[in-house]
Nucleic acid binder design. Sequence first.
DNA 1: TCAAAAGTGTTATTGGTACACCCATGT
DNA 2: ACATGGGTGTACCAATAACACTTTTGA
Lengths: 247, 247
Amino acid sequence: MINDEISDNMRLHGVLTKEKYVKHLSVDCTIFSVQDARLKVLLLNWQDVEYWSLPGGFVKEDEDLDEAARRILYERTYLDNIFLEQFHTFGKVDRTSLKLSKDFLKARNLTFPDDHWLFERFISAGYCSLVDYTQISVFPRYNNESGKWFDLDKLPKLAFDHKEIVKKGSEYIRKNIDTQIAASNLLPEKFTMNELQSVYEAVLGENFRRNNFQRKILAMNFLERLEKLYDGSANKAPYLYRFRDVR
Amino acid sequence: MINDEISDNMRLHGVLTKEKYVKHLSVDCTIFSVQDARLKVLLLNWQDVEYWSLPGGFVKEDEDLDEAARRILYERTYLDNIFLEQFHTFGKVDRTSLKLSKDFLKARNLTFPDDHWLFERFISAGYCSLVDYTQISVFPRYNNESGKWFDLDKLPKLAFDHKEIVKKGSEYIRKNIDTQIAASNLLPEKFTMNELQSVYEAVLGENFRRNNFQRKILAMNFLERLEKLYDGSANKAPYLYRFRDVR
DNA sequence: TCAAAAGTGTTATTGGTACACCCATGT
DNA sequence: ACATGGGTGTACCAATAACACTTTTGA
């Protein structure tokens, strides 16, 4: 366990010194999911550091920005083939803090020279995705790192400007809810209207009348009605649906 | 004139070698205006270079990304206090081209070592703004550079991925037309409903019925009705309006 | 036969579109 | 008085919201 931890940190140190990254540029992912009928965001925390932060990373020199975001998401969640969208780039000079950056590295027993680019100014591209948290097989990536899902109005202390990033990310998800939900893996291949409605309600944080919801969704014409689902419950069997266009 | 040109280029060279910029990061501005009842975009061209490009620039190390965009817009158009919004960041590895970059510099008689960061990969944050082209006092900035407004469906050959940037920028402007027009300086302090409608029609590229347009706009409740305008024409005097919230 | 949950229908309201009409204004 | 362009009213249609009723299901 201790050995794992050391080797993890060694690996990270090696990666940050040897691998070629685009300096001053990072990607931060706001990964949302639905849990207990609420929209949650995934945050990471390192042992002995007060602040939580978004799963983020750096962009390799030979890697598209979008690719970098996909890779980072994969590294954090082992989720592949996920619909990920850029929503805003955060570029305030003082958005990161030297002290906090050092604390982060100290918590992992990493040291870098004071003039390392890690301590300079960072511009960060924000990406967002809606995922099924039960399909996230393994995180965190490092032993002294922990991940947790947070309610948007019960966020812990966040590093840097990550609170603002989460806010903008969630606004983006809500504004683009139709495509986001359709492209997410939140629902199984086939699902009932009720399940779909629950997801909408969780993401938007408001309730709809089931009949009006059904009409509205069906009018958008991206659902395909399939066979009925007999799940053994003592009521009329609901139809199953599927998103029309294959992703 | 020749002297001016030389000194301009010298200045640019000096700036690019001495001033501290965030490497690999640029800002490109899509500046739109309305001319002949059509939405136009401002493009720049250097003598002896086939390709046109967006007014862009680099971000200083001690400058917010938003600030950089404002500064660049000011440098190009001498427009100040302009509503400028970020809409997307373009990060493909091959979005710039080494050859074209060299051509650009050659056209200005500038030489940089081959390993200069100017020739490396660039990530560019796209900003957009709607402005009154008649209020743009002076551009271009350099003598061998010319600026011109282009119809969106009659674009010339564009450098790098600037065509895509223009497209995304115009989509953003159209999607956010209400705030964009209200925040722009396209209209004078007081204006008639007809003038407002013309701007909407130019930006969206479609026509509306005046009475329905009026209803819709007034329902949004961001206009304040003022006195009537007697301009001497032989018809009923239209009301003047003003945007409610002061910008 | 009953409760639970789904499907479907009906009406009212709202927002937008099309058309019509009247009003003010300078020539 | 008249053409011009602006203001306002009304009828119509589609989308949405609110409410009601019927159907299916396993216990």
